[in-house]
C-alpha cells in the first residue's frame, strides 16, 4: 500500500516550520477531534462506555468528548438495536448534527438488525442514515470500536475538504 506523507519536513529550518497542504491540515484537525454522539441503545453501549474508560481510553484518538447534544458532535456512534420507534429519534438527531458528520454503526444490530429478525427492529441503521464504518461483533470489543474510529480517521484524512467547502451544500442558499 502506498503511503502518502501529508507533512513536509525541511532540515534547514529545523522544527519551526512544517509545510503541508491546507486541506490536509484541516482534515488533520478534524480527524483528531471527532466528538462522538453516543447513541447507546443496547448492550453495545456498555462496550462504548468501556472504550471511553481508562483501560481502552478513546481519548488517545481525540474522541473522548461524548456530546449529548447533536449540535456539538461530529460522529454518531450507533451502539445497539435500533427499533422502529427509536429509528425516528436516531434520524432526527442525525439531522440535527452539524456538517461535517459521520456515522459508525457499532455491532451486528446497528449494522444489519443482528439477531433481531422481528417486526419491531430496523434491519440496519443504514436504511435511514448513511453509515461510514460498520463494526462487526455482538457486542464488539472496545478494540474493534477503536479500530473503526481509526478507519474513520483515515477516511476523514482523505476527504477533499476544500472542494466540498467551496461547493454550496443543501443547507446553503445558492447565490
Amino acid at each position: 500500500m502506498k503511503t502518502v506523507t501529508e507533512f513536509g519536513y525541511d532540515s534547514r529550518i529545523e522544527g519551526d516550520v512544517v509545510y503541508t497542504r491546507l486541506d490536509a491540515a484541516l482534515n488533520w484537525f478534524r480527524k483528531n477531534s471527532l466528538w462522538p454522539m453516543p447513541m447507546g441503545l443496547a448492550c453495545c453501549a456498555i462496550e462504548l462506555m468501556a472504550a471511553g474508560a481508562s483501560r481502552f481510553d478513546i481519548a488517545r484518538f481525540g474522541a473522548e468528548v461524548m456530546r449529548f447534544s447533536p449540535r456539538q458532535s461530529d460522529v454518531m456512534i450507533v451502539a445497539g438495536t435500533v427499533t422502529y420507534k427509536m429509528a425516528l429519534v436516531v434520524k432526527r438527531l442525525y439531522e440535527q448534527m452539524a456538517e461535517p458528520k459521520w456515522v459508525i454503526a457499532m455491532g451486528a444490530c446497528a449494522s444489519t438488525g443482528g439477531m433481531y429478525r422481528s417486526y419491531a427492529v430496523l434491519q440496519g441503521v443504514d436504511k435511514i442514515i448513511p453509515v461510514d464504518v460498520y463494526v462487526a461483533g455482538c457486542p464488539p470489543r472496545p478494540e474493534a470500536l477503536l479500530d473503526a474510529l481509526m478507519k474513520l480517521q483515515q477516511k476523514v484524512q482523505r476527504e477533499p475538504l476544500l472542494a466540498t467547502l467551496k461547493r454550496p451544500g443543501p443547507a446553503l442558499p445558492k447565490t
Binding site: Y84, A87, L88, G113, Y116, R117, S118, Y119, A120, V121, Q123, K127
Partner: peptide, 27 residues
C-alpha cells in the same frame, strides 16, 4: 403485532414523512 395472525417477520408499511417498516429477512 402480537396477534396470532401477524407474521413474526412483520409486514411492510409506510406512513409518508413519518416512518416505515419492512419485513425482516428470516432466511
Amino acid at each position: 403485532p402480537l396477534r396470532k395472525d401477524f407474521p413474526l417477520a412483520g409486514k411492510p408499511s409506510e406512513v409518508p414523512e413519518v416512518a416505515f417498516t419492512e419485513a425482516a429477512p428470516l432466511e
